Simulated assay, not measured.
Amino acid sequence: MKDLPLSDVYQLLEPGPVVLLTTFHNGRANVMTMSWHMMVEFTPPLVACVVSRVDYSFAALRATRECVIAVPAVKLAPKVVKIGNCSGREIDKFETLGLTPLPAECIAAPLIAECFANLECRVVEMRLVNKYDLFVLEVLKAWRDPVQRNPKTIHHRGYGVFVVDGETIRLRSLMP
C-alpha cells in the first residue's frame, strides 16, 4: 500500500451518477451539476446532497426548499460538464445550453425533458446546511422517460474524469 492524499478520497467513494439539480427562485429557473449525493431512506425516498454555498443554486434551494434532481444519460455528458463550468448568476443555462424545462406536478422547479428520469423533491432537513451545506430531500414525485431504454449514466472520478456505467450483473438477493 501507498499513501493516498486525503484530497483524493472522494474519487474513491463517489456514490452515484452525476445528476442535474434544478431550482426556481425569483421568477427564474436554474440548473447545476451535482455529484455529491446519496440515498438515505427507501420509503419515503430520501436523498442527502451537498450544494455548496458558493453555488448560485444554494440560495434558491435554501429559500424555496424544493428542487428537481434530473438524471442525464451519457449522451448529455458534454452539456452536463458545461452546466458545471458556468454560473446561473451570469447566464440562463436552460437557454444557453439547449435544455427543455418541463413543468413539475408538485413544485415550481422544472423537470428537464432531455433527462431519462426526474425527481421532484422538497427539503425535509436543514440542520446540517449551515455546517456542511448538506440538504436532505424527500422525493415527492418521480418521472421516467419511456423512450430512453437502458440509459447509461456517468460517474465523476475527479479532475474531469468520468466513468460510464458498465456491464450489468444480477445476483440473488435475500432482501425483500
Rank of each mutant, 00 (worst) to 15 (best):
M1H: 12
Q11R: 15
Q11M: 12
L12Y: 15
E14N: 14
V18Y: 11
L20G: 02
L20F: 05
L21C: 11
L21F: 09
T23Q: 04
F24K: 11
R28G: 03
R28C: 06
V31H: 00
M32E: 04
M34G: 14
H37F: 09
M39C: 07
V40I: 14
A48Y: 01
C49Q: 03
V50G: 05
S52G: 14
D55P: 00
Y56F: 14
S57M: 00
A60L: 02
L61P: 07
R62M: 08
A63W: 08
C67R: 01
I69G: 07
A73R: 13
V74T: 14
K79N: 05
V81C: 01
G84K: 12
G84P: 11
G84W: 09
N85D: 14
N85A: 08
N85T: 14
S87K: 02
F94G: 07
T96Q: 14
T96E: 15
L97N: 08
L99Y: 05
A104N: 01
C106S: 05
A108H: 04
A108N: 07
A109K: 00
A109H: 03
L111Y: 11
I112G: 02
I112V: 15
E114P: 08
F116H: 15
F116I: 01
A117G: 09
V124N: 09
K131H: 06
D133A: 10
D133F: 05
L134W: 05
E138F: 01
V139F: 10
V139P: 07
L140W: 00
P146C: 01
V147R: 13
K152A: 12
H155E: 07
R157L: 13
G158D: 09
G160S: 12
G160A: 09
G160R: 09
D165L: 05
T168D: 13
R170A: 09
R172F: 06
S173F: 03
